[in-house]
Each structure stands twice: as structure tokens, then as C-alpha cells.
Simulated assay, not measured.
Amino acid sequence: MGAEGLAWFEVPGTIHVISELPTTPGTDGTKLRAAILREWARQRRTEAAG
């Protein structure tokens, strides 16, 4: 599967594989800690630009 038919912003520039997603228990089940993921992404962008 390729990027044919997708806009440039729909195709990721890089993909980072992580062993485990950061989660926290919630009243409706396990919740993904999106703020942690954003911080990780910001750190990786900073390192790549560095």
C-alpha cells in the first residue's frame, strides 16, 4: 500500500515504534495518555532537528 491518492499531510514523514503506550486507568476503562505521546513526539522532533 502506498501514498497514492493521499495529500502530502496525510503521509507520515517518520514512524517511531514504541514498545508500550502510556496509559492510565479510567472510569470507562484504560485511557491513553495523549499528553505523554505529544511530549515524546516533541522531544523526537527536537532531537532530529538538533
Rank of each mutant, 00 (worst) to 15 (best):
M1R: 08
G2Q: 04
G2V: 05
E4G: 14
E4A: 15
G5D: 03
G5H: 00
G5Q: 00
A7K: 15
A7Q: 14
A7D: 12
W8I: 13
F9T: 02
E10T: 08
E10K: 09
E10L: 10
V11H: 00
V11F: 06
G13F: 06
G13I: 09
G13C: 10
T14G: 06
T14D: 07
I15K: 04
H16M: 09
H16C: 08
V17Q: 14
V17Y: 13
I18W: 07
I18H: 05
S19A: 14
S19R: 04
S19F: 09
S19L: 10
S19Q: 03
E20M: 13
E20Q: 15
E20V: 12
E20P: 01
L21C: 04
L21P: 03
P22V: 05
T24S: 12
T24L: 10
P25A: 06
P25M: 02
P25I: 00
P25H: 05
P25N: 14
T27I: 13
D28P: 02
G29L: 04
K31Y: 00
L32K: 11
R33W: 02
A34K: 14
A34D: 09
A35M: 04
A35I: 04
E39R: 03
W40P: 04
W40A: 09
W40I: 13
Q43W: 06
Q43T: 11
Q43H: 11
R44Q: 12
R44I: 10
R45F: 05
R45N: 10
R45Y: 02
R45G: 01
R45D: 05
T46F: 10
T46P: 02
E47W: 05
E47V: 12
A48C: 07
A49Q: 15
G50F: 09
G50I: 08
G50W: 09
